[in-house]
Design a protein around this nucleic acid. Structure first.
Length: 258
DNA sequence: ATGGTCGTGTGACGA
């Protein structure tokens, strides 16, 4: 079973890209981040054979889960701050799997209010995932974490040192999730440096491979046992008028014994 | 080289 994450930087601006990806790569599940609309074009995807659930807001944020099988929403907000209405979290059951799609806060400028929000949001995420682990609920969480795990995930670490995506508190928040027993799926299969998922639109970053790895899958232990592969698919980043992110593809065994 | 590029929505702001 193939599951893909992709920050499309506006689903309206990237509708044809998303449809092309589904036709050409035919994933079983596509988890999209940064919809940037409260009107998700569900019918366009239904026409391609994909059911979907989404949580959106005008102009900012927004996440959706698309699948060839029904998508049953479990949670459409990250618990912990009832006054937080930003559309960044969707947890659903799909084909017997618990899937979580996130668009974590960017956090810049740091330090500041936005950075504080990012760290609080990651703390809330930690509490939710700890709850699932305690309940023995297997899960796959994927999306735009807006965190660069290590220096080797960054073309120019010195330039990112004080950035919210690379500051020590952000990296610590991601490491805390790994220390709880979650696995960075990409790193199970690929230990190379300079494997990026995002390249800025500016200064020819894509052409120069000046990128960062910030889109991740984290797997609960028994999901890690079932992981068959995880790779970055750079193809959509080279299409005309692309998103600044490309997609990451995870393959999971549907045999429970691995 | 002290900016550069997108998307939203038509202002700056977020990234």
């Amino acid at each position: 079973m193939k599951i893909t994450i992709w920050n499309v930087n506006s689903i309206n601006a990237r509708l044809e890209h998303a449809k092309r990806y589904l036709r050409e790569s035919a994933p079983d599940v596509l988890m999209i981040q940064e919809l940037k609309t409260e009107n998700f074009p569900a019918q366009d995807f239904e026409n391609l054979g994909y059911a979907s659930q989404s949580v959106g807001q005008k102009a900012y944020n927004g996440v959706a889960i698309l699948a060839k099988t029904p998508v049953e929403t479990v949670l459409d907000r990250l618990p912990g701050e009832p006054e937080d209405t930003q559309a960044r979290y969707l947890e659903a059951n799909v084909n017997g799997l618990r899937l979580i799609n996130i668009y974590a806060p960017n956090g810049n400028p740091a330090p500041g209010d936005k950075y504080d929000y990012k760290l609080r949001w990651m703390k809330r995420l930690t509490l939710r995932l700890r709850e699932l682990l305690a309940a023995d609920q297997a899960f796959i969480i994927g999306g735009d974490f807006n965190i660069i795990p290590e220096e080797k995930d960054c073309h120019d670490p010195a330039a990112w040192k004080e950035d919210a995506l690379f500051r020590i508190e952000s990296r610590h928040a991601l490491r805390t999730l790994e220390n709880m027993g979650l696995y960075d799926a990409f790193r199970i299969f690929d230990t190379r440096a300079a494997q990026y998922t995002f390249w800025d639109y500016q200064a020819g970053a894509w052409q120069r491979n000046n990128g960062i790895r910030i889109d991740h899958f984290l797997l609960s232990p028994c999901m890690a046992d079932r992981a068959l592969g995880c790779a970055i698919n750079r193809t959509p980043r080279d299409w005309d008028k692309p998103s600044d992110h490309t997609c990451v593809e995870l393959t999971i065994s549907m045999n429970n014994s691995g």
